[in-house]
Computed example of a mutant assay.
Amino acid sequence: MNKPLVVIFVAIGLDAAGIGLIFPILPQLLEDVTHTQNIAPTIGIMIALYAVMQFIFAPVLGALSDNLGRRPVLLISLAGAALNYVVMAFAPQLWMLFLGRAIAGLTSANVSVATAYITDISPEDKRARRFGLSNAMFGIGFIIGPVLGGLLGDTWVRLPFIAAAVLNACNLLLALFILPESHIPGHQKIDLAALNPLQPLRWVFSMKGLLPIILVYFFLSAAGEAYGTCWALWGFDTFQWNGLWIGLSLGTFGVCQTLVQALLPGPATKLLGERFAIVVGIACSCIALVAMAFANQGWIVFAIMPIFALGSIGTPAFQALATRQVDPACQGQLQGVLASAVSLASIIAPLAFSTFYFAVQKEWPGAIWLSVAVINAIAVPLVFLGTRTARSKQPASV
Rank of each mutant, 00 (worst) to 15 (best):
T387N: 05
I347V: 11
L220Y: 09
A352W: 15
A109M: 04
Q297Y: 08
P72A: 11
A277L: 05
G243V: 15
L74M: 04
V7A: 08
T315N: 09
R324T: 13
V60N: 08
F98Q: 04
N67Q: 10
P316V: 09
V33I: 15
L159Q: 13
M88T: 06
T238L: 14
A223L: 09
P24K: 06
A341R: 06
V86H: 03
A339D: 11
D15V: 04
A63E: 08
A322M: 09
L148G: 06
A262I: 07
L250V: 14
L49V: 15
N84K: 08
F219V: 02
D66H: 00
G366A: 12
C330Y: 14
R70D: 02
S397K: 14
F302S: 05
W203Q: 00
S77I: 11
E363A: 12
G336N: 01
D327A: 13
A51V: 07
S285H: 13
V166K: 03
A51G: 15
S182W: 14
A390K: 05
A40M: 10
A104C: 02
I282P: 05
P27N: 15
V7Q: 07
S354I: 11
L152E: 00
G314P: 02
L233T: 07
P180A: 00
T107W: 10
A303E: 05
V86T: 12
R70H: 06
K393C: 14
L26S: 00
V7C: 08
A222W: 15
L83M: 08
L68N: 08
F131K: 01
V6Y: 15
W95E: 01
R101Y: 08
N2W: 08
P212T: 01
T36K: 13
